[in-house]
Design a binder for these strands. Structure first.
Length: 582
RNA sequence: CGGGAUGUAGCUCAGCUUGGCUAGAGCGCCUGGUUUGGGACCAGGAAGUCGCAGGUUCAAAUCCUGUCAUCCCGACCA
């Protein structure tokens, strides 16, 4: 492609609305333009990169045995009502009514396609002999983000690869799950991403096992926990800690229990300031409603409660913070003064709580807290649990390493769905013994835009983007330094047509601009290999070839230019593939 | 949805506090010329309903009210 024939609006200055590297660079390099908050146009250069990532995803899905189909983005709202997800999605689900003849039709724009695909499969798959089956599509998804942000990382409209698998047994599901997991590793490795598969909660979608694929990045929205020994990684929601129950004995030097006045101090922060104690010294007492019973959950003041862990520790179905009426009934005090001493409900505590000697906590009385609270003497526990979010330095649950927290961008998610959708939509099969069972499902998503955005976010230098060959918009940029010099242009044109004929995708910078100008643009858009043809080199019979990341150019004889470019690209491709798991 | 910030030329921004000349600069763009190996120089030029609506005033980019949009923090996020 000739630069003069395409649209690559590069910018020298940083747009005021862009804060993070990927957003700034994608705008400056002319990859994207914003239409409104959460909706971006992919310009020719950005679209090429997106398409290359898409092609890699498609290849790997097919390699893993999935078949591609294409479902409508427009969906009848009834499907979401049947599965209860109209509620669950709430405002995120873009839906509206349209007139058709005399009636109103209520439609939604698909945020994902579990309903549509399950409905489809339920009509055509009836026998165990047809299973397993794995279908996928690459399609635009719509979610009304309450707050789109970070440029292209969080938008209301995005390209997603979503795959769905159907099985007659858990073993079958596990096999496909493994195949998808492996395919995902190959996809992200081929795209040149530094990725970490982490254990994850499957979330409101249900199911029992799931992994997220995260790209570590300071601006990532998610927090993930990694072991320093490298054998454990999980998202913060899910991450276990390797802590154990401490001994539940009253410390020998326990101070006296004292009630102190704390008027209007209802938060950890307010109390710690008023009583001049650190949050680590405090016990946070949260009253939850677990199924039908209130439960007090004790967490050290500086820690965050983890609802998933609390739910598992209690073995309850539903869990949520109790309403003020319940809290008052249980504590005998308004909200904000709960504590374990004399509370009238079941109490469970995190491992770290009994370790606090002379703790500060609510006194179950208005405007009062206790100090000098100690395990055994002032409150009792049978045992303790892991109930809080992991924290930097916690012991690893799988090794003698410790845990560290990093931010990450979620680029993929695989999970075992089970029968949630097949049950609610009546998707059943008949087994060998003529018994009917709901189909067992898995689903697997990749954010294609996020592959590009994560690369832009993590692969750049002070001059601009640095693409891996695999998803670079073009492999080679050819730069004739003086387009008015016929000798230079003739050679440049020849290299361009020979490379294109050999199937190498080239960007030919045929603009009448000064060399420095073109070099700056070339670095900004980050095409991996640069072929420079200039008057000086030509006098010596040379052209210059340079990788985006190497310090200086290599001189190559004119007649070797095309084959050298081809050789270098082939070598680089092999290198990039060497990192892909077999 | 709560908190904060910003809307002036394609981009980055000044002007607003203290209302008043024809609304400015740099970059980009157009014309001509000189240049040509890391974002050239000279000369000339085009380009803005000052986000929008209403109000105050002899007079509003500037003050007031409302509204819309965008960005950031938080809540939310299959």
């Amino acid at each position: 492609m000739r630069w003069s024939k395409t649209l690559i609006p590069t910018m020298k200055e940083v747009p005021a609305d862009a804060e993070i590297p990927s957003h700034q660079l994608m705008l400056r390099a002319g990859l994207i333009r914003q239409l409104m908050a959460g909706a971006y146009t992919y310009l020719p250069l950005g679209y090429r990169a997106l398409r290359k990532a898409e092609a890699i995803v498609r290849e790997e899905m097919e390699r893993a045995g999935a078949v591609e189909l294409f479902m409508p983005a427009l969906q009848p709202i009834d499907l979401f009502e049947k599965t209860g997800r109209k509620e669950a999605f709430g405002n995120v689900l873009i839906n509206f009514q349209v007139q058709r003849g005399g009636r109103q039709v209520h439609l939604a724009l698909g945020p994902t396609h579990e309903e549509v695909v399950t409905d489809l499969i339920s009509r055509h798959v009836t026998s165990w002999r047809q299973l397993p089956l794995c279908v996928f599509q690459i399609q635009t998804k719509f979610r009304n983000e309450e707050r789109p942000r970070f440029g292209v990382l969080r938008t209301s409209e995005f390209l997603m690869k979503d795959a769905y698998s159907f099985h007659s047994s858990l073993e079958q599901l596990n096999e496909t799950y493994q195949a998808m997991y492996h395919a995902y590793c190959r996809v992200f490795a081929r795209c040149g991403l530094n990725y970490v598969p982490v254990e994850a909660e499957s979330g409101p979608i249900g199911g029992d096992a799931s992994h997220e694929f995260m790209v570590p990045a300071g601006n990532g929205e998610d927090r993930i926990v990694k072991s320093t020994k490298g054998n454990y990684a999980a998202n913060l929601e899910r991450a276990e800690t390797g802590r154990k129950s401490p001994s539940l004995t009253t410390p020998a030097d326990a101070a006296a229990l004292q009630k102190v006045a704390t008027p209007n101090a209802t938060s950890i922060e307010q109390v710690s300031r008023m009583l001049k104690c650190s949050p680590q010294q405090m016990i946070k007492t949260l009253i939850f409603q677990a199924d039908d019973a209130p439960v007090a959950v004790l967490i050290r003041g500086d820690h965050e409660a983890n609802e998933g862990k609390i739910r598992r520790a209690l073995g309850c179905k539903s869990l949520g913070l109790a309403d003020p009426k319940t809290i008052e009934a249980v504590t005998g005090a308004p909200v904000g003064f709960a504590g374990p001493v004399g509370i009238k409900c079941r109490v469970i505590a995190d491992h770290d709580v009994p370790l606090i000697a002379n703790a500060v906590t609510g006194a179950n009385a208005a405007d009062a807290h206790f100090t000098g609270v100690n395990i055994g003497r002032d409150y009792q526990l049978d045992t303790t649990f892991d109930l809080r979010n992991a924290v930097h330095g916690d012991p690893c649950p799988r090794s003698d390493g410790t845990l560290e927290l990093v931010h990450g961008i979620e680029v993929g998610h695989v999970f075992k769905l089970g029968t949630k959708y097949s049950v609610s939509l009546g998707a059943e099969f008949v087994d060998e013994k003529e018994q009917r069972h709901p189909l067992i499902m898995g689903c697997y998503g990749i954010g294609v835009n996020r592959i590009i955005a994560s690369l832009a976010e993590t692969s750049f230098d002070e001059n601009g983007l640095i693409w891996p060959l695999s998803v670079a918009p073009y492999s080679v940029e050819i730069i004739p330094l003086n387009v008015t010099d016929p000798e230079v242009m003739q050679l440049a044109e020849r290299c361009y047509s020979e490379l294109e004929a050999a199937g190498v995708d080239c960007l030919f910078d045929d603009r009448d601009q000064r060399p420095g100008f073109k070099f700056k643009d070339a670095d900004l858009i980050g095409i991996p290999l640069r072929l420079v043809i200039g008057g000086k080199g030509l006098k010596e019979g040379n052209v210059e070839i340079k990788w985006r990341t190497s310090a200086g150019p290599d001189k190559v004889p004119v007649d070797q230019a095309v084959v050298t470019v081809q050789r270098l690209l082939a070598e680089r491709r092999t290198q990039e593939f060497a990192r892909v798991p077999a």
